[in-house]
Amino acid sequence: MRTIIVGTRQSALALTQTGQAVEKLQQLADSFGIECRFEIKKIVTKGDRILDVTLSKVGGKGLFVKEIEQALLDGDIDMAVHSMKDMPFELPEGLIVGAVPEREDPRDALITRGPRSLDELPQGALVGTSSLRRASQLQHARPDLRIESVRGNIDSRLRKLDEDNFDAILLASAGIHRMGWQDRISAYLPPEVCLPAVGQGALCIECRADDSFMLELLGKFQHEPTALAVRAERAFLGRLNGGCQVPLGAYASVSEGSSGPDAPLLTLTGMVGTPDGKTMLKETATGSDPEALGLLIADKLIAQGADRILADVRE
């Protein structure tokens, strides 16, 4: 009987989604006769400690995963449950993505005080988000809106909407779904209006590359269509050297190709915009190779000046 120590952030959402993943893994282990039990270890990350500035000003990559990955490398934990959108493109040597489970709803959600859609928000409404990606697309769609940074966990951001002077806030619908708070959602923003972050809605189960026991177990948790879509999105992310601090988004969907289920086709849309939303670069293409598709979309945007936009934002 192996005891598997699972590392996670300590927010309510992180603990909830980790608990849900552990429950499914325990069921899989039991069904395959794999003897193991799980214990959850809470770890505080840099992104959790610094809440008084926007993510774009904190700097660095892996703000919500570095300390957890170090615990993996040190052997203090055996696996980690991350939100895929928090994962940098490059993983530390010795670590690997052991599984990408089936994706939750990838869309962004609008939570408002009264109006039920983006179009219904009053002129000059105050909207809270700490994401430059969301702010850029929101300003592109509604230049009249006022955007103000709001950081913190889902529950604290919802509380700020209720208690402060925001007219609306934007959150990832996946987290709200996992918490069971769907009734708070006023409207879902389609990708045509607000393209999700890379990997949004998906989880990343990370482990050590030499842990054959964990790799065997996690392999049974893999959802291949989600994994393919995320590979395309992350190839786009890597080519643009992106992260959660820049106005960049991508979303891939998977459908069966002409040869059937063994030849899936991916459709990937990628975007890069200026923080004020005045410039919005967006491209879509279809292909069967996720990495090649991600690079193709990134290179098309680079040809239009995406690398210069991102360089300006980083400076």
Rank of each mutant, 00 (worst) to 15 (best):
P261V: 12
G270N: 09
Y188Q: 06
G257C: 13
L296C: 04
A250D: 08
D262L: 07
E206Q: 15
T286E: 15
G180L: 14
P247W: 10
L268D: 12
Q222F: 01
G270K: 06
G270R: 08
S255I: 07
G242F: 11
L266P: 07
Y251E: 09
A232E: 13
V272P: 01
G243A: 12
A187H: 14
P247N: 05
M179H: 05
S259Q: 12
G270Q: 09
S186V: 09
G260Q: 08
Q182N: 15
L248N: 06
V198C: 15
S288K: 12
G257H: 15
G249H: 02
A292Y: 09
R239H: 08
M179P: 01
S212P: 00
T286N: 10
R184N: 04
G201F: 11
G260L: 08
P191R: 09
E233C: 02
V193G: 03
R208A: 08
A174P: 06
A197F: 14
E192A: 13
A235F: 04
R178P: 00
I205N: 05
S258L: 08
C194Q: 10
Q182D: 10
V230C: 13
G249A: 01
L301G: 01
A303V: 00
T284H: 10
G243E: 11
D307L: 07
S173P: 00
G287K: 05
E224W: 10
G273K: 03
A292S: 14
G257M: 06
K220C: 02
T286C: 04
A292D: 14
E216M: 07
G180I: 13
L281Q: 04
G277C: 05
I302A: 12
P196W: 13
R208L: 13
R184E: 11
L237V: 06
F213R: 12
R308L: 14
K278H: 08
G249Q: 03
S186L: 11
L237Y: 09
A187M: 12
D276N: 09
F236I: 01
E233Y: 03
A235E: 09
A197Q: 15
F221Q: 13
V230W: 03
V193P: 01
P275S: 11
P247L: 07
C194A: 14
T226G: 05
S259P: 00
A229V: 05
A187K: 10
E283P: 00
A252V: 06
K282V: 06
L268S: 10
G180S: 07
A209Q: 15
P261F: 02
L265F: 02
P191Q: 14
I176D: 03
T267P: 00
C194F: 10
R184W: 09
C244V: 14
N241A: 07
A187S: 15
A202W: 02
T286H: 06
L240C: 08
Y188C: 01
Q182Y: 03
E233Q: 11
T226P: 07
G277M: 12
G238W: 10
S253F: 02
C194S: 14
H177V: 14
S255R: 15
T274E: 07
F236A: 04
G257F: 07
L268Q: 11
L301Q: 05
E283T: 02
R208P: 00
V246Y: 01
D183N: 13
D183S: 13
K282H: 06
G199N: 11
A298M: 12
L248E: 11
V193R: 12
D210Y: 08
C207R: 13
P290N: 10
S186Q: 03
